[in-house]
Design a protein around this nucleic acid. Sequence first.
RNA 1: GCCGGGGUAGCUCAGUGGUAGAGCAGAUGAUUCGUAAUCAUCAGGCCGUGGGUUCAACUCCCAUCCUCGGCUCCA
Length: 637
Amino acid sequence: MNSYLEIIVQDISKAYSPGITAAEILKDVSPASRPEILAAELNGKQIDLSAPITEPGKLDFISVNTPKGLEILRHSTAHIMAQAVKELFPEVKVAIGPAIADGFYYDFDSPRPFTPEDLEKIELRMKEIVKSKLPFRKVVLPRGEAIQFFKELGENYKIELIEAIDADEVNLYSQGNFTDLCRGPHIPVSSAVKAFKLTKVAGAYWRGDERNRMLQRIYGTAFPSKDELKRYLELLEEAKRRDHRKLGKELDLFSISEEAGPGMVIWHPKGAMLRYLIEEFERKEHLRRGYQMVVGPQILKRELWEKSGHFDNYRENMYFTTVDEIDYGIKPMNCLSHMIIYKSRIRSYRDLPIRYFELGTVHRHEKSGVLHGLLRVRQFTQDDAHILCTPDQLNDEILGIINFVKDVMGIFGFDYTMELSTRPEKSIGSDEDWDRATTALEKALQALDLPYEINEGDGAFYGPKIDIKLTDALSRSWQCATIQCDFTLPERFGLTYVDADGTRKRPVMIHRVVLGAIERFLGVLIEHYAGAFPLWLAPVQAMILTITDRTDSYAAEIAETLRSHDIRVDLDLRNEKIGFKIREARNQKIPYMVILGDKELETQSIAVRKRGQDSTVTVDLAQFINALNQEISMRSF
RNA sequence: GCCGGGGUAGCUCAGUGGUAGAGCAGAUGAUUCGUAAUCAUCAGGCCGUGGGUUCAACUCCCAUCCUCGGCUCCA
């Protein structure tokens, strides 16, 4: 047995006695105090600074200013919160408390829900704990003893967690009088927490399963410094300003009326113009890529939904109605009529691929608690297409769609992530078909060298899918584009084509949307642009403002000319000061203001003020129209 | 759907048992004005809905609808 350990620290190999701690090595290599170091990593495994080291290897220190360090800080802050809660409310039982993307949470089983006042109290108690510099101590216990320990405390959730752990020993961490089951590592001492805040309380099911008891979850966040915490909170404020529901009201784009029904969007003139522009864009882009436009009915006979499998697998999301004693289902998807169109005549292999495109409006019964502005609604319009092709054409078609999505996202300037979702529990079709379809999707992603994640069991009931997700102002991600392979519906509907050898073969179907739902896409788009749409999408492109009523008729003339050049203009002829009118046009985020006074009338010119600029430029009208048309054709700011 | 917060004028919000308020928006009048809010006057409310308690309810209780946050991150 060696009497020393060889440790490579900061690229230098040094010899230490076994049992030395990371904290001691830190002191050795860096005599100055290093409070930003929270933990260490030995041969890639995270350890506490106080952990005795018994094996040689490479030692790295984890600073609070790295993602790993921040996660440790937040996780430890969750423990401090749990300690504070147990001290204030001893009857509460603790469940789990991990670090998450923007902070941490801890779930509690409390006889009564926490109030905002409770949060304040808990926060105060946490500050005291931080101040009292409690060390975090790790204890390793045999499973049985750990179970016994938590049994005495009545912490049955912890017992359940230990029972699920497949190991002889478990780690416990204590700070002060609070002990928690935890993998660690943790900060060395509670005073390492420099800035934190509790943000919200919410219900959460134990282990995320709605059949389980609902616990009380407290969310919070922690940062290395007060400044960083402040910046984060300011970011949240900015996100609120960008919220599409707020902007939708302020810019008079849409409303959702209690009278009309939840999850039903009512588009006001400016919002309807936005939709019109997006839909026109979509039609052009699809025609350009070899799609054909089709239109199907809003309700189809229930029998057909039974045949497709929707009735068995999707019924709880569907609405039904009866007409002349015949049952109908209101469509939650557009595929059925597309299949009927395909079946309307005999298809040759020479006809394939066939790409049917429909801006199809669907209804889905979403659970009441999940509705959310434009992002989750019950009636929406998809830019939906169904591609029917031979198995040989499948890969190229998928590549074509992914490239289509990339082009479109590029135009709007979106970042996105891709996920491959595999077979869910509730599904139809053979394992072979699922494998084939999943492989086809995966191969396409790999061929394009795109990063993606795998989402086990999250596919549609008829096939696997690639989802493209966009994020909203609060960095919540929303599925927009999706590409789904389907071998089952062509089978169920008996779709065939005549192949070169004269035999009938089964086509493959791809369901796909590019923007997804127009409603959701516009919701994300509003937040993406913070309501300041690029010229080609702005419902009002130019606002004409008059200084006195002496220029009213000149303004009308200018407006008419602009309209005749397809520029969307509004006039503000009100008896108000120019500063007031400019303020309103600014708040409405209109790309161009055209300001007309005596000077402009005299010289037959216009004064143009561009969004985001504080000064005007005097130009003649023809020049202005040219510049606008150029900007519109560029489809960018 | 579940847990918690909320619903008062078109909008944003104040009002905790004794007949309902502000700012902005609106209407009217004055002002004709050069780059983020001119002044004055007026009007506007089954206090989400239904029921109950009370001499009396926006306020307390029950139900219901809508809305907001969360229910994905695994010691």
